[in-house]
Nucleic acid binder design. Structure first.
Length: 215
DNA sequence: CTCCCGATAT
DNA sequence: ATATCAGGAG
């Protein structure tokens, strides 16, 4: 049976991450809120490295909804066909651009309901935009944060939404905005899905993951 | 729950 | 060879 991190351990946990990386940045390439939104939609079940490779040339040509629409769905596909699930992503991005132009004057809406009403945008993507583009203290629970939370004992849950609600209650306000990036980066490079680097992990002292001696 | 679906790490 | 990657829609 796994145990939850104590409030004291949670504070230590983020103190450690803060000391190592005081100003954590996302690794998805973007130039404005619109390209951020598109990059996050493309990043579903894909590595950000692979997404960045495609978006570097795409965003040079199309950094607004209007310019994206001008490419046409097949033109867009020619840029992103190295990314998994690219057919549905291309369709969603075109629909998303139409809605941005028709309903929001080409701007990115700043509330979750409007964001989630865009094709291809669910709660996780909406939360990333709210956090990164509008500086709101929300946690977007992706595959990394879901795994890190359940492993370390930061928060347990069977679904991302369940984990998100618990994280919002358990993480002190002062860490909340940066916690999102810290947890994603920690999951990507240390608390990896396959071979977590427990022996050299900076937050080993606070972590409740069993079997970390053998990993 | 299934489908979408290429690149990369192991 | 297969698990995994800043998930979302039907």
């Amino acid at each position: 049976m796994e145990t939850l991190m104590t409030p004291y351990e949670i504070d230590r946990f983020f103190e450690e991450l803060s000391a190592l990386d005081p100003n954590p940045q996302g690794e998805l390439y973007s130039t404005n809120p619109f390209t951020l939104l598109v990059a996050v939609v493309l990043s579903a079940q894909a590595t950000d490295k692979g997404v960045n490779k495609a978006t570097k040339s795409l965003f040079a040509v199309a950094n607004t909804p209007q310019k994206m629409l001008a490419l046409g769905v097949d033109g867009l596909k020619s840029y992103i066909n190295t990314i998994g699930l690219y057919n549905t992503k291309a369709k969603n991005i075109m629909g998303l651009c139409i809605k941005l132009v028709d309903d929001f004057g080409g701007q990115i809406p700043d509330n979750r309901d409007a964001l989630e009403a865009l094709p291809g945008v669910g709660r996780k993507t909406a939360n990333v935009v709210l956090n990164a583009a509008f500086n709101e203290p929300v946690i977007a629970v992706d595959t990394h944060i879901f795994r890190v939370s359940n492993r370390t004992g930061l928060a347990f849950g069977k679904t991302p939404l369940e984990v998100e609600k618990k994280l919002m209650k358990r993480i002190p306000q002062k860490w909340l905005i940066k916690a999102h990036h810290w947890l994603v980066l920690h999951g990507r490079y240390i608390c990896k899905a396959r071979k977590p680097l427990c022996l050299t992990c900076p937050v080993r002292g606070e972590c409740h993951y069993p079997n970390k001696e053998t990993a």
